[in-house]
Structure formats: structure tokens, C-alpha cells
Amino acid sequence: MTASILQAPDMTDHLDLLESHAIFILREVVAECEKPVLLFSGGKDSAVLLHLAAKAFAPQSLPFPVMHVDTGQNFPEVLDFRDDAVARHGARLVVASVQESIDQGRVADPGPLGPRNRLQTVTLLDAITAHGFDAAFGGARRDEDKARAKERILSFRDAFGQWDPRQQRPELWQLYQGRVNPGEHLRAFPLSDWTELDIWQYIERENMALPKIYFAHEREVVRRDGMLLAVGPFVEPRPGEEVERLVVRFRTVGDANLTGAVLSNAATLAAIVNEIALANVSERGATRGDDKFSETAMEDRKREGYF
């Protein structure tokens, strides 16, 4: 944070307005809800969200815990970043484990290399119930997906955790009203109006730390389902797949076996901002296996209670 005093009131750019709106939402939900939580994946969007939350309540500590829904299929660099970020902000970390949901028989075991993305919903909803959270902040943005483009900033979830896109509460002006009955909860999306480019410009302006895998580096990858998957504990080369060593970076961070890398030499924040400004493929289209199951994969998962 800069210590110099900003002189002119017109020194306000679109990032200041986006930041202000997000801080406003964070404060409003904390004021109106009993027990909020911030969902933190270790990705760039949740890193921005945590950064904004710290600003919204500074110099006090965060008035809510941070929860990671852990599929057990993470990139190690992302777990390192999570622990650093949580420590830096003095936050309390809650880990909701998909492996525990599997062990308890709450969800079917997809096997050690099987996709666990959809299983997260059960783990997430169980954790929300167990901790009695009535609001969960998420870093989702409306420009990510056509179903997210439809969602309110404060999005109501019924007692089963479901989203009903046909019955969303009207959301007039910036009068966010977060009242729910016991057992119901809200999802709150302070970054709704940010685009991917806004996120990167803001990270650059604030000189924020991020997991190393967002920056160009050399890595062993295989080509699978139109994606470049990083060879590692959750992606083993299959017969016929050639292991290549390429300079890549990740545009999004999800499970290691569902998140593709992109070819890129962008090794600095400035280079990434330039790359995103010129991109002709969307971030989820380029990199996310979990969105490719059907035309309405995101809507279907959101209805069940996904992020």
C-alpha cells in the first residue's frame, strides 16, 4: 500500500472502482451475516479476494476464516502459496477434505487418478453445514462462464445448497440484502464485475504474490483431450502419449489432472497482462477439463451447490 497521499479526487481509474465495489460487498456481507467464510483455492481470483478482504478490514484482522476445499489433487506450488498467504494475512485456515468425504462414503471413490472436481460440491456443502456458515465469499467472475454471467452478486442457496437460476432474488442498486433462514446460505461474489484482464492489471498494480505456476517455466507435459497436462503424481503418461518438455504457464489453477497449461513465455506480471490483452481463447476454454463435459456443465454444477 502506498503511503503517499493522493492529491486529486479525479485520480480514480476503473480498478479503483472495481476495488471499491468489492470492498463494499465484503463489508456489507460481514455486517449482515452471522458467520461468513472466504473460499480460497490458491488461484489468482481467490488471492485477489483475500487481498481485498484484508484491505476492507485493516488494520483489524480478518473477521472470518478462510476455507480451502482440498481435492487432494493440487499442484504443490499452490499449497505452498496457500499456506504463505494465510500466514501473511494472519487468517485462520479451515481445510475441507474431499478425501475425507470419500473415506466416509459420502461420495464414490473415482480412483487415485480420477477426476474429483464434481465431488467438491458435497465436501463444500458438508463443511458449510458442519461449521454453520451462512455466507461464503467466492472469487467467481461473470466473464468466466455463461452461467456465472447470470448469477447475482449475493446468490441465495436453499437448505440443500442448490442454486435456482429461475428464482433469483432481485438485486436492486447496491442494496445487497443477505438475510437467510437457518440452514440456508449465501454465496457472495465481490469480483463479479471484474474481467480476467482487470484481475491481472490489479495484481500488477498491487504487486501481489501468486503461485509460481502462473509464470512461464519449463515443465514436462503430455497432450490429452486438447490440453497440455503437467506430468506429475496425478497425471501419468498413457501408452502412446509423448512426454514433452515445454515452456508453459497456467492461466487458471484447478485440480492438477483437469487443468491445462498454455504455451507462454510470459514470466512477469507485465508480460502476462500483455498476453491476456491479446488472447483469443478464454481462460476456461483453454485450460479447464471440468467445463467440457456438456454445454451447461457450469450451470449443472452450480445448481447442485458448486462454487
Partner: peptide
Amino acid sequence: TSGSGPRHAATAGLS
């Protein structure tokens, strides 16, 4: 004080 730090003045829309 805004998100960017202390300032002498602020306009509508700033937290």
C-alpha cells in the same frame, strides 16, 4: 483513506 492509501479527497463510488 481508500484502498490505495490516504488521500485528501474522494469522489462518489470510492470505498
